[in-house]
Design a protein around this nucleic acid. Structure first.
Length: 251
DNA sequence: AAGGGGGCCAACCGCCACATC
DNA sequence: CGATGTGGCGGTTGGCCCCCT
């Protein structure tokens, strides 16, 4: 798909990313990380806004992204999670390593929603066959219409810290490529009864030395020409800039 | 063979929460 | 404590693709 690229009032390019822009973004982030999305484009030699860079990286360019080819197991997981959580795509994405909330959202709307509704129709048909003599009220509860509704018991959408897209991309060649950080609050755990084992599994490999490890991106999945692309276009991160961010970038 | 319409999906938009000043 | 900046989220858009007629 090639959307026209254009510049907005502030001079930021919009529309489809070009391979050259991708190269610049990958090369910059693999080299310096994403210490500040708003400033990153300037230093990376891109004319994009920070949000656009962030989205492109998280949804498309970061390492170990899985694209398409959903397994039966993933389908079932998504459907289960949607039933439980509703349209909390970031939470759902957190349960599916390598999948992004945007992709899962698209996949739901284009594929699984139909499948889910079809299953509901089949289930209701079965139920009505076996309960011909019951009034509708006595029948099994109708499954939630996940598209229209809601999940009344859910708290209002709030910013969470554990979605796939909000994951710390803790990337080290010898450890793992994408991990999710734990929730800052346990409130939602109590309310949703979400299995947390997976989310915290990465803790097993964490120790104090982890926090001293440099922020290194797993570059094995990128062609070498991408990684050496146009270093001249970069403005290296000034030390003062870097360290003004509480070292979080090196966490 | 052509073209119309729906599907798919990358990207944008607006809003919100949190952090910092 | 309010203003501002930044990051994150879900909803929506829009353009290409592909299938059907």
């Amino acid at each position: 798909m090639v959307k026209n690229t254009y510049s907005d009032k502030s001079g930021h390019r919009k529309g489809t990313w070009t391979p050259e822009e991708d190269k610049k973004l990958i090369a910059y982030i693999t080299r310096y990380g994403h210490w500040n999305w708003n400033l990153l484009p300037k230093f990376a030699g891109l004319e994009r806004c920070g949000k656009s860079c962030r989205l492109r990286w998280l949804n498309y360019l970061r390492p170990n992204i899985k694209r398409g080819n959903y397994t039966q197991e993933e389908d079932e997981t998504i459907i289960k999670m949607v039933q439980r959580l509703g349209n909390r795509w970031s939470l759902i994405a957190a349960q599916l390593p390598g999948r992004t909330d945007n992709e899962i959202k698209n996949y739901w709307h284009t594929n699984l929603k139909k499948k889910y509704h079809q299953q509901n129709v089949n289930a209701e048909t079965e139920v009505s066959k076996s309960k011909d003599h019951q009034s509708p009220d006595e029948a099994l509860p109708k499954p939630n219409n996940v598209d229209d509704v809601p999940f009344q018991n859910l708290p209002p959408t709030s910013q969470s810290t554990d979605s796939c897209t909000t994951s710390s991309i803790i990337i080290s060649p010898t450890q793992f490529s994408i991990t999710t950080t734990g929730r800052s609050s346990d409130d939602s755990k109590e309310k949703f009864d979400i299995p947390y084992e997976d989310e915290f599994a990465f803790a097993d490999v964490m120790n104090e030395s982890f926090w001293l490890e440099p922020y290194v991106v797993d570059i094995s999945c990128y062609p070498s020409d991408v990684l050496v692309a146009e270093p001249d276009c970069f403005s290296p991160v000034p030390d003062v800039e870097l360290w003004s961010h509480d070292h979080e970038y090196f966490a």
